[in-house]
Every structure is written in structure tokens, then in C-alpha cells.
């Protein structure tokens, strides 16, 4: 029996390790390639060898030229501002909307909620042109606010938080009313502190979405001074020359590092939020 269990555990571990390798391999390749010159990089993948995944013959030239030649630092700062702002605005807006839809009864509340959820079904690409027209119309094209503003009203965030609010006993709010708190005080002092995990989860997902967004910033921002990191990496080469892949990978590594650090710090809340909200990926 014990032997059987050990064999099963070994098999499971092996499968997990294989899946992990599948997920890690592209990242390992990107990081390793960021330390190679163009020639070594191509030699290691034609034919594909184990060297492709290790920084063999490492050089930091790619990083040196990336920071010297491109506006990657400005783009990083822009991305941090956009992602941070988007997180703050999304949390504020979604939590207030979800709370109203959960606790305030008004005619058509269910229809409003279903309509909001239906926007899930629209692919981002289909929204680009109308969004561009609206954001340009508001005079926000080429601005960081224009990059973040269309996404702060997140149907996913509303759904996630509505579920969290529904699980919160309404008696907490009743008790607070008797204690003398008004709606705003109840919302900020009683309700929000008790949905910390879903809020952190939404914050993290929004940050990831914002940090990795490419298409919308490419459409709405033309000024390099206001460009975000993903677009800056893609545009770092000259249109008339072959891309410098080592530099591109260095940029990708730099762009990924903050996300990895953030995820390592908050992964507990991320998994908790996903499992308690019933949204399992």
C-alpha cells in the first residue's frame, strides 16, 4: 500500500514537473537570450539545444544598449503610473458599483448587471475603434489617462466583488447603522476591510492586465514620451532593420521582473481570491 502511494506520488510529481517545464521554458529562453548576442542566440536554436535555455557565453551588452539607446525607463515609469492608476480607479469604481448592485434595490438592477456582464463577450479588438473615438473626443489621446480610462469599469471586477459583497452578512451593515455610521462610513470602514482578499485579487489581475496591455496603448498613444513598456519594447528597433532580438529579450525581461516580484509578494491573496470567488482558471 505504501509502495503504491509512493509510486503515485512520484508519478504526480513527474507530471507537475513536466507541466512546470512547459510553462517555464519560454521564460527561461527569454532571460537566457537576453544575455546573448544575435549570432549565439540563433546558433542555440538552430537546431534547438539545451544551451538556448541557459545564459551560456553571457554578455550584458543588450541591457547596456537597451538603457542607453531606448526610452525603456520612461516607458517603465509610464506603465507603473498607468497600472497603478488603473488599479486604484478600478477598485474604487467596481467596488462602489458592485456594492450598489448587491445592496441597493432599484428597478432593473438585474438587467443592469446582466448587461454589464454581457460586455464580457465583446473582444477587445472589436472595441478599439469606438473606444478610440470616445477617448479622442474627450481629448485624452496621447495621454496616460487615455491609456487607463477605458478599462477602469471592469465587468470582471464588478462580478468578482459583487460575489464577495453577497457573502458578507448584511447584519454587519445593520450593526454599523445602529452604531451611527452613514452609507459612506459603512462602505469604507466596514464593508471594504472585509473584502480585502477579493480586492487584492482584483487589484493584482488589473495590474497584470494593464502592465501587459499592448494593442490599446499602441492605438491611443503616438508620442514616445507617453509610451508604455510593451509598446516601447516592440518599437525599439528601426523599421528598416532586422530587430535586435537580444535587446528585445532584455526589454522583455525588464518588463516581466516587476510582475514576478509583485506576484511573489501577493500570490497568497491571488490564489485565495480565485478559490473563494469560485473563479478558478
Amino acid at each position: 500500500m505504501k509502495k503504491h502511494h509512493m509510486r503515485r506520488a512520484f508519478f504526480v510529481t513527474l507530471v507537475i514537473a513536466l507541466i512546470l517545464c512547459c510553462f517555464l521554458a519560454p521564460y527561461a529562453w527569454i532571460v537566457a537570450s537576453s544575455f546573448k548576442n544575435q549570432l549565439t542566440l540563433f546558433n542555440d536554436v538552430t537546431p534547438l539545444s539545451w544551451k538556448a535555455f541557459l545564459p551560456v557565453g553571457g554578455t550584458i551588452e543588450n541591457y547596456q544598449s537597451l538603457f542607453k539607446r531606448t526610452n525603456v525607463l520612461t516607458a517603465l515609469a509610464n506603465t507603473a503610473i498607468v497600472a497603478g492608476g488603473q488599479v486604484a480607479l478600478t477598485l474604487l469604481l467596481c467596488s462602489m458599483a458592485a456594492y450598489s448592485l448587491t445592496r441597493v434595490s432599484f428597478p432593473g438592477a438585474k438587467i443592469v448587471f446582466v448587461l454589464i456582464l454581457l460586455t464580457f463577450l465583446l473582444p477587445i479588438e472589436a472595441l478599439m475603434v469606438p473606444l478610440y473615438q470616445v477617448v479622442s473626443g474627450l481629448g485624452l489621446s496621447n495621454t496616460l489617462l487615455g491609456v487607463m480610462i477605458p478599462w477602469v469599469a471592469s465587468p470582471f471586477g464588478l462580478f468578482l466583488l459583487k460575489q464577495a459583497f453577497e457573502e458578507l452578512p448584511v447584519e454587519l451593515e445593520d450593526a454599523a447603522r445602529i452604531d451611527g455610521a452613514g452609507h459612506v462610513r459603512i462602505f469604507f470602514s466596514i464593508v471594504l476591510p472585509n473584502v480585502k482578499v477579493p480586492m487584492l485579487t482584483l487589484g493584482l489581475i488589473t495590474f497584470l492586465f494593464s502592465w501587459n496591455s499592448f494593442l490599446w496603448p499602441l492605438v491611443i498613444v503616438q508620442d514616445p514620451a507617453n509610451q508604455v513598456i510593451q509598446v516601447a519594447i516592440a518599437q525599439q528597433g528601426s523599421p528598416t532593420q532586422l530587430p535586435n532580438w537580444g535587446e528585445t529579450f532584455a526589454g522583455a525581461t525588464v518588463a516581466t521582473l516587476p510582475l514576478i516580484l509583485l506576484f511573489l509578494l501577493l500570490q497568497k491573496y491571488f490564489t485565495q481570491g480565485m478559490t473563494t470567488s469560485g473563479i478558478k482558471g
Binding site: E171, A175, A176, R177, I178, G180, I190, N194, K196
Partner: peptide
């Protein structure tokens, strides 16, 4: 009047203590 202005206090079935 609002609950706070009625000079009452209430104990709930599930206690309704603020968890945080």
C-alpha cells in the same frame, strides 16, 4: 429617524461583530 438617532442598541442573531 435614523437608527443612530433612536437611542437604541441591538444584539443580532449572528452577533454581527466587525471581523476586522
Amino acid at each position: 429617524l435614523e437608527p443612530r438617532d433612536r437611542n437604541i442598541a441591538m444584539v443580532f442573531q449572528n452577533y454581527a461583530l466587525y471581523p476586522h
